[in-house]
Structure formats: C-alpha cells, structure tokens
Design a protein around this nucleic acid. Structure first.
Lengths: 217, 217
DNA sequence: AAACATTCAGGAAAAACTCCTATTTTATTT
DNA sequence: AAATAAAATAGGAGTTTTTCCTGAATGTTT
C-alpha cells in the first residue's frame, strides 16, 4: 500500500473540504493535503503541488467538475482523480470515468469507504463504489436527454398510456379514456415500467415531470 | 457571548458532518459536539444530549429536514435550530423559519459565517444570512398554504410515509426505511390517499412536487 | 414471403390494497 | 388524576391490481 499520499482536495463547500481533510488526516497513509475551492484553482495548484490523488466534487461553480477532470488529464495523463458526488445516477459515473476519473464514490458513503477509495486509486487501480457500477451498462435514466430515451423505448401506444398513468389516472381510467380493455392497459402498465426501469406510478410521474409533460405549477 | 455551546449536528453526508465538526471544534466557544445522520435520530438524540444548538441540513432522506424541525420544536419549544442548505431560494428559508428554525445559512458560506451563526443563535437571536432575508417577503404564499393543508391533514408519521411514497419508494421500501411492518405502511398508504383525496401513487407524487418536497432536477 | 414489431387481450398466480379490528403509547381535556 | 381522544403499529380476510405467459390480428420491413 502506498504511503504518504499527497492529496489535492477540490470542493466549493467549506464544510466539505474541512470534512474530507479531517477524514483523511486520520488515515496513516495520507501525507500532505492541499485544498482549493474551484476547478480553475485545481489546475494551477496541480502542477505546483503535484499530488498523488486529486479528490473532487462534480458539481462546482465555474468550469465545473467534468471540465476540470478533462483539463487535468490534458495537463498530465497520469493524473489520478477520485470523484465524489451527491449524484448516484449511473450517467454521472459514466461521464466522470469517460472524462478521465479513476474512481467514483457517493457523498453518502461512510468515512472508511472514502479513505479506502483514496488508497485504492493511489495504487493505480480503479475504485467505483459498489452499487454504482452495475447501473453503468443500464439505462440512461435521469438523463437530460431522457425525452429521447423514453420516446425510443416506448412504442406510440405505450407512450399514450404512459402519459395518462403518469398524470395520475388509474388503469381503469386509462382504459376508458383510450377505449381499451382493462387487461390491455394493465399489461401496458407493466411493460412501460419495465422499459423505463421503474417500479411504480410515482416514478412514472417523476419521469413525466422531468420531461416537462406535467406542469408543476 | 455563550461559552461551551453543545452542538447536535444532523446531516446524512459523512464528509459534511466531519467538516462541520472540524470547523466548530476550532472555535473557542464550542463545547461538546454530537452528530447523527438523520432527522429521526436527531429527535432521539436531542432529548438525551440536550444540545444548545441543533445544526442541520434541510435535505435528508427519511423524514427530511422540515419535518425534523417540526418534531424537535414539538419536543421542546425552546430548541434552537440552525439550518444550512444548498438551497438559497427564499421559499426554503421561509419554510424552515416557519417550521421553527432560528437561523439559516447557505452551504456555500465561509467557515467564519457558519461559526458566527452558531454563536448568534445560541444567544437566542436569529441569524439569517445576508442576501437571503430580503427575498423572504417575496415569497408566494400559495405553496406554503398547501404545505400546511397537507401537514394538517396528515399526522407526522403519515407525513413521513407520504414523502417516501411520493418519492417513488414501494410500501416495502418505506417499511424498511422507517423500520415498520409492511402492513403498517400499506395501511398508512390507504389512509394517506383517503385524506389527500387521491387514488394512486402518481397523484401523491404530483402533490409532493407542487409542495417542493421533490427535486425535479 | 418471412421475420418482426405493434396492438390488443385472456388466464392464473402473485402482490398490493382496502377495510376492519385491536393493542399500546402519547396528548389533551375535564 | 381520570377520562377521552388521537396516533402509531400491525394482523386477517377479501378484493383489486399487477405480473407473467400466451396468442391472435394487423402492419411494416427486408
């Protein structure tokens, strides 16, 4: 295991920088820690401090997390970046890794997980927190381009049913509305939830909302 | 100025708890600090630890921040709660204060601001970060009234279940989350839908959305 | 034409929901 | 302090919904 790992912390929230610092300082394998509050500063500080690992948040003002990853990678292709984020969604993990990150942990993780992740990526391995990776192959769920995903995944008739279910109609209501048998709608219901990878009507509503199909007021 | 202020930290993110702890520990006027990761735990811990100030995030899984404030206030009307949040929007500030919080600071604030806020509220004053207060009058009362309508109609526990169901959890998930039997949740589910006069989870989601209890992206 | 997707729906089993009842705890009122 | 009301919890039984499998009719693509 690597010793004396130099860490560059990048986060715009003071409390989070302080927190990470505290968690890391209690680990024996951690060396010097420098923290900065924006991606731009990270790029400058990187070439001066030459950390072994860069630990950063994805969502930051300024150039943001993803662009920071790209720039750091351009500066030095061997840079080791560990991303942590409130976003558990696969699409973020995917993008971060694509941009050049070597690890990804959720902000909800326990202290040990965060420390472990640092030590693992410092050794040159990848660290993607359990539960995040499996979804990567999966749906681009929660994507901004979800409208297309939905439109692609659902047949026209399924989409009709989806809209009504998401609006809050019962399967019987939908059947009446579309002049279909109840069983037909019930089966569509199941089918739609499978295709969109959700398990209940509330989640359908969420998707519809995100797609702007439902006006929130 | 108060000395030896006992603080109860409530946040679901390990790093944030650690960060706040670090920032506060460096202040001479801060005494013992206890941290918990959820609102439910805060309510329990409060009566045991009897902190001078409760410092908490608004957005948490489980019963969430607002409901936690209400419950703490009910437990002890003199409780001093300082809220910090990524949400700078006036509506959140207003709701938090209405629920019983004594202070509100943004998560982006500098370390000194956070520490100062704790010491100010500990003295029994209010502390609303500059820049947040002016907008408070600006709030539309519509949503807040609806929130009260829901909060009035539902008992606290029903409200907990409502939030989770509206978020898209199944009855089984909710049961696991709140450590209840499935049947209990199933029965609450029925009860909640009756009280809110809706007939399915999608409509619950709509209501939660309108109330701003669900972040749409 | 053959292969495939789409629309529609029935049957059977599994799961979820509803309604009723009941115990325990907590609050409120007299 | 006792009585009353409200809330939290959950079991049982019956009903409804969902799921999964299957299949026919229609249309479309290669």
């Amino acid at each position: 295991m690597r010793e004396n790992i130099k860490v560059l912390l990048v986060d715009d929230h003071t409390v989070v920088r302080a927190g990470f610092r505290m968690l890391l300082e209690s680990q024996p394998f951690i060396g010097e820690i420098v923290d900065v509050e924006r991606g731009e500063m990270a790029c400058q500080e990187y070439s001066r401090f030459l950390p072994d690992v860069v630990v950063m948040d994805l969502s930051m003002p300024g150039i943001g997390g993803l662009e920071t990853i790209r720039r750091l990678c351009q500066q030095n292709e061997d840079v080791i970046i560990l991303v942590y984020s409130i976003h558990d969604e696969a699409i973020y993990v995917e993008r971060a890794l694509q941009a050049g990150a070597k690890g990804y942990v959720s902000k909800n993780s326990a202290a040990e997980v965060l420390a472990t992740a640092v030590s693992v990526v410092a050794e040159g391995k990848k660290y993607i927190e359990a539960g995040l990776l499996p979804e990567v192959q999966d749906v681009r769920h929660n994507d901004t381009e979800q409208l297309h995903a939905v439109a692609d995944a659902l047949s026209p008739r399924e989409f009709d049913v989806f809209c009504l279910l998401a609006k809050g109609l019962s399967a019987h209501d939908v059947a009446a509305e579309l002049c279909l048998g109840y069983k037909t709608v019930a089966n569509y219901n199941t089918q739609i939830k499978n295709k969109l990878n959700v398990s209940n009507a509330a989640e359908l509503a969420h998707i519809a909302m995100r797609l702007g199909l439902i006006k929130t007021g």
